[in-house]
Design a protein around this nucleic acid. Structure first.
Length: 833
RNA sequence: GCGGGGGUGCCGGAGUGGACAAACGGGCUGGGUUUAGGCCCCAGUGGCUUAGUGCCUACGCAGGUUCGAAUCCUGUCUCCCGCACCA
């Protein structure tokens, strides 16, 4: 038995010793940047990782063999909740915990022979990386792209800490099961909305992105055109801006609704008799109805908050409500409600007995406020609308908007569903936000020369509040401006910040004057990005946003980071996503231990097309292992050689060549499982071919091409076989075989198939009738008759029978009583005597 | 709930208007090799029927478009991904 693990180790050591996968800037070679989404460093590799890397390494090796200067790096997305949880739970030091995880996963990555340039490794928790997060933050702050505003968080009153959505289970804290509350905090945002238009429009440029991802991003950005109307808070000058696509119904507004979690709401009810109920309502809606509240059918719930607004067109006094169906995220987080002409508003008005006012008349029926049983959303002429009466409502949209703009009551605007990116996290294990608060000078950015703001080590992980607050040395600082006593910002950055530009850093991972420089100029954009479909929106959108910001900071010329995108499907088990809580996570290391890395890689790639979801089942692992053995034995077995060239040789040349064409195309299209299927067919053909004497030169040519084609999938065994057939160089650095259309011989391939099928059929029949036969009569179509005759001896040898061949329309030999004479192309009728 | 995908033989999965009972593998059955087993090699594998031929049925379910549908449309069930503090 061949020890594939030993072979793997041998070649991994040699690759490392000769450092063959290190990449440099090269003027003579075209660059190609392949990147897998860098992983969160968990201690063990799972099936999804294996799939991700096997795909990436296959592409990287393929492109390298196609003479590109391939950049293929690896790093770790190493900030985040799990390290902090480990610190709280096991008193582990997050730094040590993370580094030891990185060590563990890296060892496993190395064990599968991925052709990374390890010298470029980065990890986002290291100062040399997160320093640049801070640097970029400061640049964005200067440009007004980083700003502070109030925003609600999940708050556990008993743990006195902010909870991630993941930590809220059925409205309760995951640790202590207390009811979670909503609390407003002043937090940092990135102004991604400033780039909404470009992020939307540039999707069209991404020709090599999956359509589904582009659609999801488009819907997420969610552009809509409408009018911003400023209502006034009654008896004040304060504006309450409302976004509407229906300014034509402005005279029909009978109430206004805020999203319950709108920061303004608590301000408005503070100290009033409504305060207590409002707070209760907010918690209920925001936490428990997180998604369900957007349903058209779900029950409309709300309450009056004791304040009024003023309609800017007719100065009517309008009561202000809060309700579950209004979302903070969309528009301005408040709406004008027109119950007569909007179904949701109508239902709400009916329930809370709010007046309904018709402002659009229908030509089909009389609309009566008291009798209406649903909103009228059709077209019509404006009524009860002052000077706009009589206008068609579609035209009125324009007229009224113009009127509003003229009188400075609002403006025409484009609204996006996309909202600014909240980057503040009240946690330890992330990049400190480089800001200092001074009583005198206000918000003061940390001067660039003082970067990085390092994460302190004198902190306590109690599970209560942000650990950073427990470090006096971190919190208490001198103001950089006035040198007075000041406090440091204790929020850290969302880990999505780290992953939004790491692909630039790989190009210049050791650069220490800038986040990146010349290397990025040469290597960016990423030609091929590979990662899970679950990142289709957030990560990819943030990375696109950052790239545009960095471009506007003149750090790069690139506008889009990823030219081509492959979103790999999830690996599921028992019909469900693999997760720790379900206990169905599969660790592939046993496959590697038992069969070696090549088998593991081959199997995961062969199991399904990369883009598709894959239901995990390890039953087929044996099959991939068998295939490796077949290739290995094929190369090691020496057939008998001869000098002349016959049809069989022509066939195998042709077959090898069509396989080159097919495998190349398949890899280009990511149809990796199909590429492996073609290789399996080729191996079958060569095995059959070498049963008899073969032409030595041709046989070796075919083997050579086969191993080359196979090497991106199973590099270790390919190196071994490459050496065995007498090569001194690395196959990893060898050139990809070229398809030669002159070598294609369709006739030879068809003939081979025809003869092979015929022999199989005859054997099958012999077996069925279970008797000795002397003679086989083949009725073929006339075109194929000569083929059979030419190969009669060969067939006779193989079958040990006498062969007679007739064409079906050969009248002399045609026996009408015999129904066996029907023949099809490629499938002759067979008669056995 | 909203947005995006998927459902094909015993199993993993190819096939996205005709050439397809369905690539390639697994499993199973039979044969070869072997003292035997394993490995390996070859073949078969929806149902019925004749050795050859032919018929029927199948692509979650129900309809529709088409000369023709797994493939296009409509409805429906179900699973997966995302929903902005998991990464």
């Amino acid at each position: 038995m061949v020890d594939f693990n030993k072979i793997a180790k041998k070649w991994q050591n040699r690759w490392e010793k000769d450092n063959i996968f290190a990449t440099k800037i090269s003027k003579n070679k075209q660059k190609y940047y392949v990147l897998e989404m860098y992983p969160y460093p968990s201690a063990t590799l799972h099936i999804g990782h294996l799939r991700n890397y096997s795909i990436g390494d296959c592409i990287a090796r393929f492109m390298r063999m196609n003479c590109f200067n391939v950049l293929y790096p690896m790093g770790y997305d190493s900030f985040g909740l799990p390290a902090e949880n480990a610190a709280i739970k096991n008193k582990a030091d997050p730094r040590e915990w993370t580094e030891s995880n990185i060590k563990a996963i890296k060892r496993q990555q190395k064990s599968i022979g991925l052709s990374y340039d390890w010298s470029r490794e980065i990890a986002s928790h290291r100062e040399s990386y997160y320093k640049w997060n801070q640097w970029i933050f400061l640049k964005m702050f200067e440009k007004g792209l980083a700003y502070r505003k109030k925003s609600p968080v999940n708050w556990c009153p008993s743990c006195k800490t902010v909870l991630a959505n993941e930590q809220v289970i059925d409205g309760k804290c995951w640790r202590c099961s207390s009811e979670v509350e909503i609390k407003d905090l002043e937090q940092w945002f990135f102004k991604i909305t400033k780039y909404a238009k470009e992020l939307l429009n540039d999707l069209d440029k991404l020709r090599d992105w999956p359509e589904k991802v582009k659609i999801m991003q488009k819907n997420w950005i969610g552009k809509s055109e409408g009018t911003l109307v400023n209502f006034k808070l009654k008896d004040t000058d304060e504006n309450l801006p409302v976004f509407t696509t229906r300014p034509d119904t402005l005279y029909g507004v009978t109430f206004m609704v805020f999203a319950p979690e709108h920061p303004k709401v608590l301000e408005l009810v503070k100290g009033t008799k409504y305060e207590k109920d409002v707070k209760k309502f907010i918690n209920e809606v925001v936490i428990k109805e997180k998604f369900e509240r957007t349903s058209e059918e779900s029950e409309k719930k709300g309450m009056f908050i004791g304040k009024y607004a003023v309609n800017p067109l007719n100065n009517e006094k309008i009561p202000i409500y809060i309700a579950n169906f209004v979302l903070l995220d969309y528009g301005t987080g408040m709406i004008m409600a027109v119950p007569a002409h909007d179904q949701r508003d109508f239902e709400f008005a009916k329930k809370y007995k709010i007046p309904i006012k018709v402002v659009i008349s229908s030509s089909d029926f009389d609309l009566n406020e008291k009798k209406m049983d649903r909103a009228y959303i059709g077209e019509g002429k404006l009524i009860n609308s002052g000077e706009f009466n009589g206008l068609n409502n579609k035209d009125a949209i324009d007229y009224i908007t113009k009127y509003i703009e003229k009188n400075k009551l609002g403006k025409k605007t484009v609204q996006y569903k996309l909202r600014d990116w909240l980057i503040s996290r009240q946690r330890y294990w992330g990049t400190p936000i480089p800001i200092i608060y001074c009583g005198k000078c206000g918000v003061v950015p940390v001067p660039e020369k003082n970067l990085p703001v390092k994460l302190p080590k004198d902190v306590k992980f109690t599970g209560e509040g942000n650990p950073l607050l427990t470090s006096g040395s971190f919190v208490n600082v001198k103001c950089p401006k006035c040198k007075g006593e000041a406090k440091r910002e204790t929020d850290t950055m969302d880990t999505f910040v780290d992953s939004s530009w790491y692909f630039f850093r790989f190009c210049d991972s050791k650069e220490n004057k800038l986040p990146f420089s010349k290397g990025a100029e040469y290597f960016m954009p990423v030609n091929q990005y590979i990662g899970g479909i679950e990142h289709a929106i957030l990560h990819l959108l943030y990375a696109r946003f950052f790239t545009k910001v960095l471009r506007d900071l003149k750090l790069t010329k690139v506008s889009e980071p990823f030219t081509r995108l492959l979103t790999q499907g999830m690996v599921t088990k028992d019909g469900a996503k693999m997760s720790k809580s379900l206990g169905n996570v599969v660790d592939p290391s046993w496959i590697i231990d038992k069969y070696g890395p090549d088998t593991a890689r081959l199997f995961i790639l062969f199991a399904a097309l990369p883009e598709r979801e894959l239901e995990w089942n390890d039953k087929g692992v044996e099959g991939s292992f068998k295939f490796l053995n077949r290739i290995y034995n094929l190369v090691n077995d020496k057939p008998k050689f001869r000098k002349d060239i016959n049809n069989k040789d022509k066939f195998i040349i042709s077959k090898t060549n069509s396989t080159i064409k097919q495998v190349t195309e398949y890899i280009n299209d990511f149809k990796l499982s199909l590429a492996i299927g073609s290789l399996m067919e080729l191996v079958n053909s060569i095995n059959r071919y070498k049963k008899q004497e073969v032409n030595e030169k041709i046989y070796h040519e075919c083997l050579k091409d086969l191993i080359l084609l196979f090497s991106p999938f199973c590099p270790h065994i390919s190196e071994e076989l490459w050496e065995k057939i007498g090569n001194k160089n690395y196959i990893s650095m060898e050139k990809w075989p070229k398809f030669d259309s002159n070598k294609i011989n369709k006739k030879a391939e068809e003939l081979e198939e025809l003869l092979h099928n015929t022999i199989s059929d005859i054997n099958e029949i012999l077996k069925l009738i279970n008797k000795k036969a002397k003679k086989v009569i083949i009725y073929s179509i006339p075109k194929e008759k000569s083929l059979f005759n030419e190969n009669k001896e060969l067939l006779e040898d193989e079958l040990d029978l006498e062969i007679q061949v007739y064409a079906v329309n050969d009248k002399d030999k045609y026996d009408p009583s015999n129904k066996s004479k029907k023949a099809k192309p490629g499938k002759p009728a067979i008669y056995i005597e």
